[in-house]
């Protein structure tokens, strides 16, 4: 397996790992967002979903191992790559300007120029997110005995948390808006016929992720009551795992 490690530790090999882990994490984002959208359906549906998910113990374990490995690899390589990329320049320019004329935004704020920084923001947000929902650290007794739905409500109605979650979601959106298309390019999936579509989809995905995830803290913070009580829940899609009479647990979806 030495050959594999050698190949994967080259500048191109590392990008493969970044791309594969990135794509896997994007897949997770899709599932996570779909699950979270059940918050808009109502406490019961969301609770059922959470419960059903936690019934699948083997699946959960496997996906958590994969997920954490992907996260760690992605983060580790991000540091490694960034460190070597910074060294490769050695002396920075007095002035630097883009020559791309297809830019929608200025190069300094373009997502690709911010991958490491947006990634770092996401990492910080992730730590907060895990301490809140997974480890329930720092909340004292407030979260005890809450349903998953209730727990989300408590955390998101905290003003500071709402801001962190909203910003974290936007950073995540910015990150994946370049990351998704970039992963395709890194894996060599490129063809003039489809490149436009991939790029456009990547940006669209970034918006969906940013708006989708940021909607929860924003709406929860702006409304005294959860939105599901003020609007009918007819538009939400039923999840296959939903089991109507399952008891609520305090565990949350991954």
């Amino acid at each position: 397996m030495n050959w594999l490690m050698n190949a994967l530790s080259s500048s191109v090999g590392r990008k493969f790992v970044m791309a594969l882990t990135g794509l896997f994490l994007c897949l997770f984002l899709v599932i996570h967002l779909a699950g979270n959208l059940l918050l808009y359906v109502g406490p019961e549906t969301y609770g059922n979903y959470a419960h059903a998910l936690h019934e699948q113990k083997a699946f959960l374990l496997l996906s958590q191992v994969l997920l954490y490995s992907a996260f760690l690899l992605h983060i580790f390589l991000a540091f490694r790559l960034t460190a070597s990329n910074v060294t490769a320049r050695f002396v920075s320019y007095r002035k630097k300007a883009s020559k791309r004329d297809d830019r929608v935004v200025a190069s300094v704020v373009a997502p690709e120029a911010w991958m490491f920084r947006s990634g770092a923001i996401v990492l910080l947000f992730l730590i907060v997110h895990l301490t809140d929902f997974k480890f329930e650290f720092g909340w004292g007794e407030v979260l005890a005995g809450q349903t998953p739905y209730g727990k989300a409500g408590v955390i998101l109605r905290d003003f500071g948390r709402a801001i962190i979650y909203a910003l974290g979601s936007v950073a995540l959106g910015v990150h994946v808006s370049h990351g998704l298309a970039s992963a395709f390019q890194s894996l060599g999936v490129s063809h003039p016929k489809y490149n436009g579509c991939v790029k456009w989809s990547s940006v669209a995905f970034g918006w969906i992720v940013a708006v989708g995830f940021a909607s929860f803290p924003v709406i929860w913070a702006l409304t005294a009551a959860p939105p599901s009580q003020t609007q009918p829940a007819t538009h939400a899609q039923p999840a296959s795992q939903v089991q109507p009479d399952a008891p609520h647990t305090h565990a949350l979806p991954i």
Binding site: G13, K15, S190
Partner: peptide, 29 residues
């Protein structure tokens, strides 16, 4: 350094070499 797919190289290239060649390189690799 490593490529992070910003396409700045393509924009600066006087010979109009496209980043699609980098994708081909990645496939080959």
């Amino acid at each position: 350094g490593a490529c992070t797919n910003t396409s700045e190289c393509e924009a600066a290239c006087p010979a109009a070499v496209s980043v699609s060649h980098i994708a081909r390189l990645n496939r080959e690799y």
